[in-house]
Design a protein around this nucleic acid. Structure first.
Lengths: 165, 165
DNA sequence: TTCCAATCGTTTGGATCCGAACAGTAATCC
DNA sequence: GGATTACTGTTCGGATCCAAACGATTGGAA
């Protein structure tokens, strides 16, 4: 059992290392925790729920977005999922090859392409999502309602602040 | 201006879409916010602070880890940064090619390799980190101390819960 | 009408990332 | 002490990811 560094130990070491500089430790620790949490949650959901169905995290997010919004233009999907347009092209190609989504070129504006969940894709989402959500529920299970609400609200603020500039 | 979907609109649409299923909406919204926030913050810091110095997010995290802990075995660095061993090999190669880190094979156990910040790397970190932290501070600036503390604590709990199983 | 700037999705090149397979080294078992 | 097991960092193939360059299309300006 190697002695790995816990989050708390890392924070302590950080403080000692740069003690002489006028830094905002609270901000640093908060964002380090943010990054680690997102990584851990993503990894956990990917390995335990998505991988058995041969789905990628990004691929799942695209399917989920199409499930919620029925049909969307690719530019909006990319922005919603948080990936670049170029990345979406590749992901969509992979999903389309498995008949999970359909590509529907717009007739009004021939530059645009809409994506839509196929019947197979819809079926897959209705099978997977309850399981996915059950795992989500378990992950946040150690937080009480007040903590969860405050955290969610704070995270939303971070999104707005980061994207504002 | 295309009408993109905000986080709140997405949550509302989600609720309507899967209303008939017994789901944990609070958990779903919390983790969606978590993922979006991590992505937004990472993108903002990468574009505004790291890119001008030609540094990758992952590369910066490795440098930062070595800065805090002086020297580390690669397995611990990978675990600390949250990437696989194979990924670290590539990142370390890139950083070593720019003379930002040094590879130091262990004499006791010849399987092990230690990484260490080079003088150039140390200089770079002392230049970049104050700027990095200033941006971090601005990102969390819209949260009061209580919110920030609750959020950080909740995120730590998520890390532990996710990695426990 | 005729440019021309804006915007779409795609392609390209390079870096990142993972899981699995791998060779080398260390530790353990019998 | 010799064989097995465990663990290290590396390599490999395939998918993801981004920024930038690109061709196609649109719509407004001259």
């Amino acid at each position: 059992m190697p002695d790995r560094h816990t989050l708390a130990e890392t924070e302590q070491a950080t403080r000692e290392r740069v003690q002489h500089l006028p830094l905002d430790f609270a901000a640093s620790h908060a964002l380090l925790s943010l990054y680690r949490a997102a990584n851990a949650v993503r990894g956990h959901l990917t390995n335990n729920v998505l991988r058995p169905h041969d789905l990628t995290w990004t691929g799942f997010l695209v399917l989920w977005t199409l499930w919620i919004w029925d049909s969307m233009e690719t530019r909006d999907i990319a922005e919603s999922v948080g990936i670049s347009k170029g990345t979406l092209t590749g992901v969509a190609k992979t999903l389309a090859a498995r008949d999970l989504i359909e590509r529907i070129p717009s007739t009004e504006d021939r530059r645009l392409v809409n994506l839509k969940l196929s019947p197979t894709g819809l079926e897959l989402m209705e099978e997977i999502y309850p399981e996915f959500n059950k795992t989500e529920s378990r992950i946040v299970g150690d937080l009480d309602a007040r903590q969860l609400e405050t955290m969610t609200s704070a995270l939303r603020t971070l999104v707005e602040t980061s994207e504002r500039d």
